[in-house]
Design a protein around this nucleic acid. Sequence first.
RNA 1: GGCCCCAUAGUUCAAUGGAUAGAAUUUCAGAUUCCGGUUCUGAAGAUUUGGGUUCGAAUCCCGAUGGGGUCACCA
Length: 595
Amino acid sequence: MIEQLLTDKVTEAVKTLYQLEASPSQIQLQNTRKEFEGDITLVVFPFTKVSRKSPEATAAEIGEYLKVNEDAVEGYNVIKGFLNISINQEYWLSFLSANYRAGEFGFREMDNGHQVVVEYSSPNTNKPLHLGHIRNNLLGFSLSRILQAAGKNVVKVNLVNDRGIHICKSMLAWQRWGNDETPESSGLKGDHLVGKYYVIFDKHFKEEIAVLVTEGMNPEEAAKKAPLIIEAQQILQKWEAGDKEVINLWKKMNGWVYDGFAKTYQTLGIEFDKTYYESQTYLLGKELVEEGVQKGVYTRRADGSVWIDLTADGMDEKLLLRSDGTSVYMTQDLGTAMQRYEEYKPEQLIYVVGNEQEYHFNVLKVVLKHLGCTWAESIYHLSYGMVELPAGKMKSREGTVVDADDLMQEMFDTSEAMARELGKIESFDDEEAKNLYRTIGLGALKYFILKVDPKKNMLFNPAESVDFNGNTGPFIQYTYARIKSVLRKAADAGDEVSFSTLQSVQLMPQEKELLRKIHDFPAIVAQAAELHSPAIVANYAFDLASEYNRFYHELTILKEENLASRALRLSLSQFTSKVIANALWLLGIEVPERM
RNA sequence: GGCCCCAUAGUUCAAUGGAUAGAAUUUCAGAUUCCGGUUCUGAAGAUUUGGGUUCGAAUCCCGAUGGGGUCACCA
């Protein structure tokens, strides 16, 4: 791309002019702002020290050097310390004709040397997925695709939290109040059915606590002494002891949940390369802790529990093994991290987990480093903020969770209402129309959530997200469909032939703007991968769609008489549609061929 | 309270330390017209606060204020 070309030339220029070996960070190239003449701008302030001249004079010297020594540079102008470089039209046109047909534009070949593991989703099996999981799943899936497009060999991993006291609560409630209810008999999706019993457990549990409190017990103690919780703990113990009856019930109910999750994942359009179950990994990590004790980096207390003192690292003391020898969260995460490292030897180990667990991952890294695992540095916690709704905050503790399945259905319904109102579906049969609602509803949801910087808390407004105008997924999808429609019409008129005649037309400003925007796409993908941020791709997709709309609005395409101009505009349209499709693919968003 | 994160137009989001802080939406004005709708054009509108570093700060550093998270032998 042109940036690389210019970086090299500028390096050469400052070496020749000022005998300076410039580091890449000193060469700051950016797209020239619209109000100025030029395509790419070099910030020359970093060179004024060695040039011992004013910013303007320095810029002029470098500009002149580039103009003389680089064919692609046709001119320059200087404003303050900014050197605005004009790239000649041949460069842009050859870029266009070389790439406009390339379906994989912006994507790099996979390099097997760069393996990356991305863990995301990681649900509990006692209740259905909710809005928070949606952000998690979308981020994880999209990030995986972005990394893949940047040339990484990505393994998408899910770690299902299928054991523990939470599922025992659902099991107990189902045994006691369930009357053999099944997904089939109740018509409920499996995960919803199990979630229902979790809620039932909680209701009775709270009642028991209330009774104990009126009898004079303090609430904290009551929460530990309530018969239901004791019984649930007994079930957990039986589970760990391998009790047949308990295990069978556990398998049955988890099976229902998996069926339900599979449907949710399918509807949401995400997938995994590999699924791990905590029931199979929760014993891992104990040997590691033992190893740490031998090495003297962890300490065993009199009661048998194992701790690490992280006060020197600015953290607290942390428990690594219970006094009864059983694992805690940290123990198994140490184990699974080690397992993954040994299995894949990845250059990066990414965890998509909410920001409430930031401390946990900081500790995880440090604990591994104390063990001598230098690869702990490759752990990256993609920490994301909470999703709120206009109605208020979404926290499971307050019982205001928004169910993922319900939310998606609402999105489909809303997009249907919207499409009908706008008369989008008159030429569609039922099947096509239904697919369109799905595509639009999901596109709206995904785009709205992914366009926000992951680390920030965000507000999801369902009604606003499906708007066909504005910074929304449907707007981008609509732009794509419109381009496709233009191209179909052109093809009907037998225009394909002229696509190949892209020579010596004069680029109009709007055409060049669009081309420049398209030209940025590979750099955007690289940056998004580097910063682990789908938001960069999302905002780019909107920019590109908006740019196309401006282009489309100001220039005629189908009625253009000049054949070369017409070919130019059609190839630009084709190119834009490919890049929009590619950008949306990175976000896991489908594009409709017409709408 | 300790530690971590966040703070940008009325609202929801942008801005690798670079030029006059961009969009979308809302509001207002105009155009379009079967219409108080749609579409189009234009305008208005923001860096919480006080210092510091820098040629240059929304961005980096220190303090204040406000919001969120986290400080379990839960995961």
